[in-house]
Nucleic acid binder design. Sequence first.
DNA 1: CTCATTTCTTAAACTACCTTAATTTTTACC
DNA 2: GGTAAAAATTAAGGTAGTTTAAGAAATGAG
Lengths: 172, 172
Amino acid sequence: MANFDKITSTKVQKGTIVLHKGDTCNFGYKVVSGCLKSYVIDKSGKEHIVQFAPEDWFISDMDSFFNNKPSNIFIDAIEDTEFLKIGKPSFEDLAKHDSNALKEQNVKMRKSLISLNRRLIGLLSSTAEERYFEFLQTYPNMVQRLPLKLIASYIGITPEYLSEIRRKIEKK
Amino acid sequence: MANFDKITSTKVQKGTIVLHKGDTCNFGYKVVSGCLKSYVIDKSGKEHIVQFAPEDWFISDMDSFFNNKPSNIFIDAIEDTEFLKIGKPSFEDLAKHDSNALKEQNVKMRKSLISLNRRLIGLLSSTAEERYFEFLQTYPNMVQRLPLKLIASYIGITPEYLSEIRRKIEKK
DNA sequence: CTCATTTCTTAAACTACCTTAATTTTTACC
DNA sequence: GGTAAAAATTAAGGTAGTTTAAGAAATGAG
């Protein structure tokens, strides 16, 4: 292992924008406490959440990070959050000289790929209610911490409709 | 480079099932000619296409392959297809001894990540018609080769509705 | 070439989910 | 503790996409 010096710890307040769309993403973020979210904004101005990153999750714009291009996503703090910033130089240096680091990168990407795939399949084949249950499994205990609005955005429906779904579930 | 012996070329006829759901996926498939598709079947028996793999594309069930568990997807030949089977031992040996191979893996996964991300965002924020245009960009020239039915499955709508969309587009 | 099978098209009725808007509840701040 | 702002609920009406079904076109096997 090497280059620990390039990994720094940061604290930000709720609401802070950690990565701006259009900027190059020079870091990977590993959350220590609190929660980050990544999201896109579509043509009609609507926000779509790609990922939540509570404690121990890793979040980044891989495309921007690895290919050095402007990011398509935003990353903000949903709560007061502490995270580790893992800089690109350390990543790349590691990758050049240290094949273990390359392997770690690969493992991380694999995990992202697998979870993205799961989500894709959910969107293709499940109803909104089923996706809500999938969300509950993917992010256990987060229901209590996340506003309904953000959960709705994550599963791809309006807050109004999620509200209706919850009512229906409770009646059972 | 090493372990060429473990990479074998295979030809299969249209309709052949290359990977069965429930079996462990012991290979990555690199298509030389023809086309493969990967898909899931949901509770109601409907097929949802995850990926097409025409010439030069790579296809596999990463989750099954790397984590040694039963696959959730099927992979079949849409056309008579020739592909390279890259076995797990050679993958791992390469990873151990050949850092170029590791890097190649890395690059491949990045590409997959990027395209998966695009698709996810499309499903969250675009209409069926927009997703159809995105499909046309992702798989140029494949419209002519793929039956409408499969394209509809890929973009997440019924064949009937894709038929309607095409009619609407032509009227313009 | 011909019959059978699969694929595609069209259209009408239906449903999951959205939009708008008004009301209530919760959160945040001086 | 009160008031403003944000979040959540509810309900009515609307639309994108589905279902069902029937006919037309294309594909494939003998």
